[in-house]
């Protein structure tokens, strides 16, 4: 499955780096703790979080994640979006809370 498929299925909003929609998804990881994501996420994972801080971009970039999905209707700060464009990191947003977004993605990737 590609990032674009997830965007279509869950009606996600694309906030940065549209070119990343063609990335393949290897799975998903859910966490709001950057150290956890650094330690446990895998290359190509989509990362669900409600963190909107600038540092999420660096984590996604270092770990080669396929996209960040900001959950719970939160909006990424402007500087986060700007950084994401520079670093070629795709940021998506959804109004769904973390539990439900994870549940739906789990069913799609199964």
């Amino acid at each position: 499955m590609k990032v674009k498929d997830l965007v279509d299925q869950l009606s996600l909003d694309v906030r940065s780096f549209k070119d990343g929609l063609g990335n393949d998804i290897t799975g998903a990881y859910v966490s709001d703790l950057l150290s956890d994501v650094m330690g446990n996420s895998k290359k190509g994972n989509v990362w669900l979080t409600l963190q909107t801080h600038l540092n999420i971009v660096a984590v996604a970039s270092m770990k080669d994640l396929s996209a960040i999905i900001i959950v719970g209707g939160r909006q990424a700060q402007e500087e986060t979006i700007k950084k994401a464009e520079q670093e070629k990191v795709t940021i998506l947003t959804t109004a769904l809370p973390s539990f439900e977004a994870s549940g739906r993605i789990y069913q799609l990737l199964k």
């Binding site: 709001d32 703790l33 950057l34 909107t52 801080h53 939160r74 700060q77």
Partner: peptide, 19 residues
């Protein structure tokens, strides 16, 4: 503003500072 925070990283690692 929702999402704005000046909390340092260690505070976010404790589950606070989400703005």
């Amino acid at each position: 503003q929702e999402g704005y925070s000046t909390a340092p990283e260690w505070v976010r690692e404790m589950g606070w500072g989400a703005g």
